[in-house]
Lab assay of single mutants.
Amino acid sequence: KELVLVLYDYQEKSPRELTVKKGDILTLLNSTNKDWWKIEVNGRQGFVPAAYLKKL
């Protein structure tokens, strides 16, 4: 499993997105899109802007 660090808080703006908090370490599911990465948070899957995340 690949992990990502959340660099900035992000509030979901659609049902396909997820809310994340700065400092969270989460599972990366897909990073093929350069702008939006798919991650998992508490069993939910969704997208967060790639600029808000850093691969560990």
Rank of each mutant, 00 (worst) to 15 (best):
K1W: 12
E2V: 12
E2T: 15
E2P: 13
L3S: 08
L3P: 04
L3I: 08
V4E: 00
V4Y: 05
V4G: 02
L5C: 07
L5Q: 08
L5N: 02
V6Q: 01
V6P: 00
L7K: 05
L7E: 03
L7T: 05
Y8S: 10
Y8L: 11
Y8Q: 13
Y8W: 13
Y8A: 15
D9G: 05
D9T: 06
Y10C: 01
Y10I: 01
Q11F: 14
Q11L: 11
E12T: 10
E12C: 11
E12V: 12
E12F: 10
E12N: 10
K13Q: 14
K13M: 13
K13A: 13
K13D: 07
K13Y: 04
K13E: 08
K13P: 06
K13H: 10
S14G: 14
S14H: 13
S14E: 09
S14C: 08
S14Y: 07
S14A: 10
P15C: 09
R16M: 15
R16S: 12
R16A: 11
R16I: 14
R16F: 15
R16G: 14
E17G: 12
E17F: 06
E17W: 05
E17Y: 05
L18D: 01
L18S: 04
T19W: 05
T19M: 06
T19R: 06
K21H: 15
K21M: 10
K22L: 04
K22S: 09
K22M: 08
K22C: 07
K22H: 07
G23E: 02
G23A: 03
G23T: 01
G23F: 04
G23N: 06
G23Q: 02
G23K: 02
D24S: 12
D24E: 12
I25A: 02
I25H: 04
I25K: 05
L26R: 07
L26S: 08
L26M: 07
L26T: 07
T27M: 13
T27C: 08
T27L: 14
L28S: 02
L28A: 03
L28M: 04
L28Y: 02
L29F: 04
L29G: 02
L29S: 03
L29W: 06
N30Q: 10
N30M: 09
N30C: 10
S31Y: 11
S31M: 09
S31K: 07
S31V: 07
S31G: 12
T32Q: 14
T32P: 04
T32D: 15
T32K: 15
N33Y: 08
N33A: 08
N33V: 05
N33D: 15
N33M: 09
N33P: 04
N33C: 09
K34D: 12
K34L: 12
K34C: 09
K34I: 11
K34V: 10
D35C: 10
D35M: 14
D35Y: 15
D35E: 14
W36N: 03
W36G: 03
W36Y: 11
W36I: 04
W36C: 07
W37V: 02
W37T: 01
W37P: 01
W37K: 01
W37D: 00
W37H: 02
K38V: 15
K38P: 01
K38H: 13
I39R: 00
I39D: 00
I39T: 09
I39L: 15
I39A: 11
I39M: 06
E40I: 07
V41S: 14
V41F: 15
V41P: 00
V41R: 15
V41D: 15
N42C: 10
N42W: 07
N42D: 15
G43V: 03
G43S: 08
R44K: 13
R44L: 12
R44G: 04
R44H: 12
R44E: 11
Q45M: 12
Q45G: 09
G46V: 06
G46F: 08
G46S: 03
G46W: 05
G46T: 03
F47T: 03
F47C: 09
F47D: 04
F47A: 03
F47E: 04
F47Q: 04
V48L: 08
V48D: 01
V48F: 02
V48C: 05
V48K: 00
P49G: 02
P49Y: 02
P49W: 03
A50Q: 06
A50W: 02
A50L: 02
A51E: 10
A51I: 12
A51Q: 12
Y52K: 05
Y52Q: 04
Y52I: 12
Y52S: 07
Y52H: 11
L53E: 00
L53F: 04
L53Q: 00
L53G: 01
L53K: 00
L53Y: 01
L53P: 00
L53D: 00
K54L: 15
K55H: 08
K55L: 15
K55G: 04
K55P: 10
K55D: 03
L56Q: 05
L56K: 03
L56F: 10
